[in-house]
Design a protein around this nucleic acid. Structure first.
Lengths: 147, 147
DNA sequence: CTTGACTCTGTAGTATGGTACGGGCCTTAT
DNA sequence: ATAAGGCCCGTACCATACTACAGAGTCAAG
């Protein structure tokens, strides 16, 4: 069986060495066996696991959620449906973020259209809109966007 | 002229006391004069400024960007156009984020549709898609979404 | 056998936007 | 006058996902 150093799996998976050690600390990947010298010796599967993490991150899952997915995956009682639920919940998360961003964009566009780009800032409708306490720039539906 | 304690302007502006001190530390609001006792004494305008910050945040500006807006606002050379450029740039930011989220959503939906919700996880198309190095879950156009 | 690349540990720092806490004065109302 | 609440400062902490660095040991090629 092949086993690789941390640098090698980092290269193969396309992540940094420090990232792998970080994932180990946070329990996303198992502690690998060590050589006598203390060097980590990774089995090939670790590369797949790192790639899984990377892909899940690209799909919008947080490391915490990815950890849960990985735990679900080894639990024999997990069904395909459980996984689908996670995916659907994440789709809802994403949709909510999109809606919030759309509301921000609409508000900004409204202000921007009102601004002809000329004149002093004392009359800038964009600044006025932000200063004015009585306009509906209230966009944060539930206070979670990106921050 | 009226002047208020930190607790009062916090209530009026709808932010926390600690937040105001944090904004002071980071230069978003000026250091106010103090009483003999050391108590901060805020002029009324500070409430408007805090509300401006709040609203700009809701529109998707970061504190750094808000600081820039506030600096632009006091610069006599700033034109309405400068402000409009900021707003337009922010609209572009937001659009980019939306696009990235849409791509994530599409990918997740594709996987989810392929999953009938039955069967063991060993055959779950969602997990398979994430494990497989050769599918196009590559969603991160430029690596900045929400993280 | 040497040298350069690699790996080890532990700690600290990055960015973002705050929040919390402790110990000690200050203010204000009763 | 006294008690409750407000405010002071400095520091540390929250989540998120890493990244950097120092100082020391290890490995492999030439």
């Amino acid at each position: 069986m092949t086993s690789m150093t941390i640098g090698k799996i980092a290269r193969l998976a396309g992540v940094g060495i420090e990232t792998i050690r970080f994932y180990e600390r946070t329990g996303l990947i198992d502690e690998p066996p060590r050589r006598e010298s203390g060097y980590r010796q990774y089995p090939e599967e670790t590369v797949a696991r790192l790639r899984f993490i990377k892909r899940a991150k690209e799909l919008g899952f947080t490391l915490r959620e990815i950890k849960e997915l990985l735990e679900l995956r080894i639990d024999p009682n997990t069904t395909c449906e459980d996984i689908r639920h996670r995916a659907e919940a994440k789709i809802s998360d994403i949709e909510e973020k999109i809606r919030t961003l759309e509301r921000m964009k609409e508000a900004l566009m409204k202000f921007t259209l009102a601004c002809n780009g000329r004149g002093p800032i004392s009359e800038c409708p964009i600044l006025e809109a932000m200063e004015d306490e009585n306009n509906d720039a209230s966009v944060d539906a539930d206070g979670d966007t990106n921050t």
